[in-house]
Design a protein around this nucleic acid. Structure first.
Lengths: 182, 182
DNA sequence: CGATGCGTTGATCGGTATCAAGGGGGGTGG
DNA sequence: CCACCCCCCTTGATACCGATCAACGCATCG
């Protein structure tokens, strides 16, 4: 499942991918701030805002759970802000792969290979790029021996430390193989 | 006051400007997720995480306040994600001016002219641009008769509806005056 | 007076978008 | 079974926006 915001001319920014157990939507807010769309079969538990607020008034544990959820969303958004505002295409893609890997690990799933939550068009809309740019960035990472695309929807990380360096802007994806060809 | 995230090579993304009454920092999180720096004299009320959690356990009102604060931060971040990922320079600047104007109105302050929270370098770091690009975008908005820079730290909005159209990507800042010169 | 920080403007460069074309795989219908 | 289509991925050529580089004006301050 994905959450996104759109402009009138069709430009779209995906702001989040959701996984089982995630909270979709913002409590205590009187208007929708984003749209959402299932990428696969999804089973949702709908809670009215009114009911949520009533229960939360009496249950601080529920409030803590909500705070934790929103806080995690906010932390992810802050990381994305840095990526969208200041990172180059290769760095964004590297960041995204690591984000998926860490998220899978946190959910107790396999962190390598990483399973992509959507196709490249959606990933591009999440990273503020085009699908062509994402494809070319993945190609550079592959040629640099850092990761490989498997079965078109999962990515094998062969060199995590270099991937992390690239994601943090300390190294070019193309550095090694471009320089080593002479 | 501003919150920001940086990369090792000095690239910086400002994620938020803070105003009196705002909550700085993320509760229930064990590590800092951003740096913060005062842009002016600032008076802070420091609350240890431990104390905050203790109080929140017994006080659902406090938790509601926290939820409201984080939620507002998250909503602003989502808007910024759309801006940084999908909006052109002029659109980001227009969006920023309106965001400032609306924020001032919410705080009961004058919404026109808008007071800039920092200099153009900081604004550029907030919008994922360079100061030169911000300056040129402001120049285009000024020449289009949409807004004017006053005393170098406040902006007069002369045509709010066109500013809103630009911020939402429905119109170019340069459209009117470029076309009307023949 | 020079030094410094900030804003402004112009020239050029580069990274990503855009445009275009083709390939592969899966589904559908003949 | 095959032909066809559609969606997605891939790759190359080109265009364009914003970054970079450079220079200057202006105000403030020591």
């Amino acid at each position: 499942m994905e959450a996104y915001k759109s402009l009138a001319d069709g430009r779209r920014q995906i702001v989040s991918f959701f996984y089982p157990g995630d909270m979709v939507g913002l409590p205590y807010v009187d208007a929708h701030r984003y749209s959402a769309c299932a990428l696969d079969h999804a089973l949702l538990w709908r809670v009215s805002r009114h009911e949520l607020e009533l229960r939360a008034l009496a249950d601080c544990g529920l409030q803590s759970w909500i705070i934790n959820n929103i806080t995690r969303s906010l932390m992810a958004s802050l990381d994305s802000l840095l990526a969208l505002g200041r990172k180059a295409a290769d760095e964004r893609v590297a960041h995204f792969i690591l984000e998926l890997s860490r998220g899978a690990a946190e959910r107790g799933l396999c962190d390598n290979p990483v399973i992509l939550p959507a196709n490249q068009v959606h990933i591009a809309d999440y990273l503020g790029l085009t699908n062509q740019t994402v494809c070319k960035a993945l190609g550079r990472l592959r040629r640099a021996g850092i990761c490989r695309l498997m079965r078109s929807n999962r990515i094998w990380i062969s060199d995590r430390s270099r991937l992390e360096k690239i994601a943090e802007g300390n190294q070019k994806a193309s550095g090694a193989w471009k320089g080593s060809r002479g």
